[in-house]
């Protein structure tokens, strides 16, 4: 508590850095993963890439990727961009696959009905496919958010400022309170953002409030699957 009372401005700064990176990664992830998922619904080549990409990436430790992405992409090693790119890759791996699953399991009858009514393809995507896939998208997003917030801290070992600096700095200077503060703030931040997404998701999908159990179970299963997917990359 004493440490925190003297250092809270730094904690707030680092929290904001952390938050900003989280936002960038989340937005980029959705921006890349959802179109990829929709495209790989009909493109066999992309579908194969999705499987290989998601199956192998989750096994690769993030620390190794932090080292290798700069070599492959040409960004500086000790940069926020590097961290954002690497964690976006992990996020895309999770959301691409689970959203593809969601698109694949859209009820054919409903797509049929939309076509028969004369809904254009573009409109069908926006007003039918995406809303119907969004419960899965939201649970996958929550998985990504949780692991992203944890993984951002790893960037501290290459000097990228985030709440992870509280771990490296606390360790090097032997300040246990600093490390504990870091853990608490990271967990709290994760919990807060998770609630935010969950509440926003529920508000945006009123039709889910009394949804039949089957589809809710499906969403939960996807979450369990992607959970299995991200655990391996959680360091």
């Amino acid at each position: 508590m004493k440490w925190l009372s003297q250092n809270w401005p730094m904690v707030i700064d680092l929290t904001l850095d952390h938050l900003w990176m989280t936002v960038q990664i989340t937005v980029l992830t959705v921006l890349f993963a959802v179109p990829l998922a929709r495209l790989s619904m009909t493109n066999r080549w992309l579908r194969a890439v999705a499987v290989v990409f998601t199956n192998s990436l989750y096994a690769v430790p993030s620390l190794a990727l932090f080292m290798m992405v700069p070599v492959l992409v040409g960004v500086p090693l000790r940069s926020t961009t590097n961290v954002v790119i690497v964690l976006t890759l992990y996020g895309v791996a999770v959301i691409w696959r689970s959203t593809l699953d969601a698109f694949d399991t859209l009820p054919p009858r409903i797509l049929d009905a939309s076509d028969a009514m004369g809904v254009t393809r573009w409109r069908r995507f926006w007003s039918v496919e995406l809303p119907l896939a969004s419960p899965v998208l939201v649970s996958a997003l929550r998985v990504v958010l949780a692991s992203t917030i944890s993984l951002i801290t790893v960037g501290a070992v290459i000097g990228v400022p985030s709440l992870g600096l509280l771990f490296t700095d606390g360790f090097q200077r032997g300040i246990t309170a600093e490390v504990i503060t870091g853990i608490v703030v990271v967990v709290a931040l994760g919990w807060l953002l998770d609630r935010l997404v969950a509440v926003a998701g529920a508000a945006a999908m009123p039709w889910r409030a009394t949804t039949p159990r089957r589809s809710r179970r499906l969403a939960r299963r996807v979450q369990a699957q992607s959970l299995r997917g991200t655990d391996g990359s959680a360091a």
Binding site: R109, D112, S114, V128
Partner: peptide, 9 residues
């Protein structure tokens, strides 16, 4: 359509 084919959302 059978079962109406209504948009659930």
């Amino acid at each position: 359509l059978q079962e109406g084919g209504l948009l659930p959302h």
